[in-house]
Computed example of a mutant assay.
Amino acid sequence: MLTTSMSAILESSLDASNIAVCVKDGNKCVLSQNDYCRELCGERVGELCETGCMELYASDNNQQWKDWGSRVYKNSYMHGGFFDVTLLCSAESLITFLQPLEDRYEMAMAYYRDKGLTKREVEVVSLTIKGISNPEICKELSISKATLRTHLNNVYHKIRDLGEVPEFMPANRVLR
């Protein structure tokens, strides 16, 4: 049980981080929302919720126990933007945390724009950090898989040559 002090600290931290929070009962009826959640989803208290994060939850067939544990869905597109979505699940409740990624993307792009990349490499990075798959990037940019691989490898080499680690791009994207 959260004390009043713990609750205030938690609420203050979530507000300062611009994280949307929603608490639902085991039947997916909204019990509570913070201000940012209301801004994204509208006032939903007392309503059954089956959109946004609940669509992710409903379509997740990778969990052995649907009503237990935590789930993280990175780079999820909903409510007109990208979010990292975390669900804490039990038979009694579902607690959702939506962490917006727009600021993080802007920070990442500012980082990469200052690293001597070509215009095309910056386009590839922009799509990659948003979690767009390699085949989708190839289609969007009208390039082959080999060309994409070359761009990704060039980005990694340029960043590493500067003595840095390309922290915003997943390492497993190279050579695919």
Score class of each variant (00 low, 15 high):
Asn62Ala: 07
Asn62His: 09
Trp65Val: 10
Trp68Glu: 15
Gly69Met: 08
Gly69Tyr: 03
Ser70Thr: 14
Arg71Cys: 09
Lys74Ser: 11
Asn75His: 11
Ser76Ile: 04
Ser76Glu: 15
Ser76Trp: 10
Tyr77His: 15
His79Val: 07
Gly80Gln: 05
Gly80Ile: 05
Gly81Asn: 11
Gly81Thr: 10
Phe82Cys: 04
Phe82Gln: 05
Phe83Glu: 06
Phe83His: 13
Phe83Arg: 05
Val85Cys: 10
Thr86Gln: 14
Leu87Gly: 03
Leu87Tyr: 01
Leu88Cys: 10
Cys89Thr: 11
Cys89Tyr: 00
Cys89Arg: 12
Ala91Glu: 14
Ser93Pro: 00
Thr96Gly: 04
Phe97Met: 15
Gln99His: 12
Glu102Tyr: 09
Glu102Leu: 08
Tyr105Val: 02
Met107Pro: 00
Met107Asn: 14
Ala108Ser: 14
Ala108Cys: 09
Ala108Tyr: 05
Ala108Ile: 02
Met109Leu: 15
Tyr111Thr: 02
Tyr112Cys: 03
Asp114Ser: 15
Gly116Asn: 09
Leu117Ser: 08
Arg120Met: 14
Arg120Glu: 15
Val124Thr: 12
Ser126Phe: 06
Ser126Gln: 11
Leu127Phe: 08
Thr128Leu: 15
Ile129Cys: 02
Ile129Glu: 03
Gly131Trp: 03
Ser133Leu: 08
Ser133Lys: 13
Asn134Gln: 13
Pro135Arg: 07
Ile137Gly: 07
Lys139Ser: 14
Glu140Ala: 12
Leu141Glu: 06
Ser142Gly: 02
Ser144Val: 03
Lys145Ser: 13
Arg149Met: 04
Thr150Tyr: 14
Leu152Ser: 01
Asn153Thr: 13
Asn154Cys: 11
Asn154Phe: 00
Val155Pro: 06
Val155Leu: 04
Tyr156Ala: 06
His157Phe: 02
Lys158Pro: 04
Ile159Gln: 02
Asp161Ile: 01
Asp161His: 10
Gly163Val: 09
Glu164Arg: 05
Glu164Val: 02
Pro166His: 11
Phe168Met: 07
Phe168Thr: 01
Phe168Glu: 01
Pro170Asp: 10
Ala171Thr: 03
Ala171Gln: 07
Asn172His: 08
Asn172Arg: 04
Asn172Leu: 08
Arg173Met: 13
Arg173Gly: 00
